Simulated assay, not measured.
Amino acid sequence: MERSTFVYDGDCAFCTRCAEFIDRRIPTGVHVVPWQFADLDALGLTEAECEEAVQWVGADGSRAAGPDAIAKLLGDSGPLWRVAGVGLRIPPVRAAAWPAYRWVARNRHRLPGGTAACALPQEARERLYGPSGRPAADA
């Protein structure tokens, strides 16, 4: 693989808006692609992984998901964004980033730019958050 890849849900308007923001505002050599148009086999990803969270596959084969993937993306960009990426890796920030990411993932259809198509499939929601809609660890 020549360059790193950041994979998002192209069926979600909120996710697509975020990817467009990355393309316009974050200088990076990373390939940003919706999972629906990515070669998941070549990236070593599954549809289920991509439905649950954004994914990072480094040029070196390293992988990350959710806020860890976002930190990797930011770390591979311009100087100011790189600082934000380092910030996301600080243990207390990282610990808070995961619940925040899960909340956004669970509610992305309600966020600006979101549509009903942004809602996670019921199976993925229950696998991640349990039948109550709360994270399984909290249930």
Rank of each mutant, 00 (worst) to 15 (best):
M1E: 11
R3F: 07
R3A: 14
T5M: 06
D9I: 07
D11R: 14
C12K: 01
C12W: 02
F14C: 02
C15H: 08
C18S: 14
C18E: 12
C18G: 13
C18H: 04
F21T: 12
I26Q: 05
T28H: 08
T28D: 08
G29D: 15
G29P: 03
V30I: 10
V30C: 12
P34N: 10
W35Y: 15
Q36H: 11
F37I: 00
A38N: 01
D39Q: 06
L40I: 09
L43E: 05
L43P: 01
L45K: 08
L45E: 01
T46G: 10
T46H: 05
E47Q: 10
E52R: 15
A53Y: 01
Q55M: 12
Q55F: 07
V57Y: 05
G58C: 08
A59L: 07
D60S: 09
S62I: 08
S62C: 02
S62K: 03
R63L: 05
P67H: 11
A69H: 04
I70D: 02
I70E: 01
A71P: 08
A71H: 04
K72S: 14
D76A: 15
D76R: 14
S77Q: 06
P79E: 10
L80E: 06
L80D: 02
R82F: 07
G85I: 04
G87W: 12
L88Q: 04
R89W: 03
P91R: 13
V93Y: 03
V93R: 02
R94C: 02
A95D: 04
A96F: 11
A97V: 05
A97I: 03
W98G: 00
W98F: 07
P99G: 02
Y101K: 00
Y101S: 00
R102K: 13
W103S: 05
A105E: 01
N107D: 05
R108F: 09
R110Q: 13
G113L: 09
G113H: 08
G114L: 09
A116M: 08
A117Y: 06
C118E: 03
A119R: 15
A119L: 12
A119T: 06
A119M: 13
L120V: 07
L120T: 06
Q122H: 12
E123Q: 14
R127I: 01
L128I: 12
S132W: 03
P135Y: 03
P135F: 03
P135R: 13
A136I: 15
D138C: 00
A139V: 11
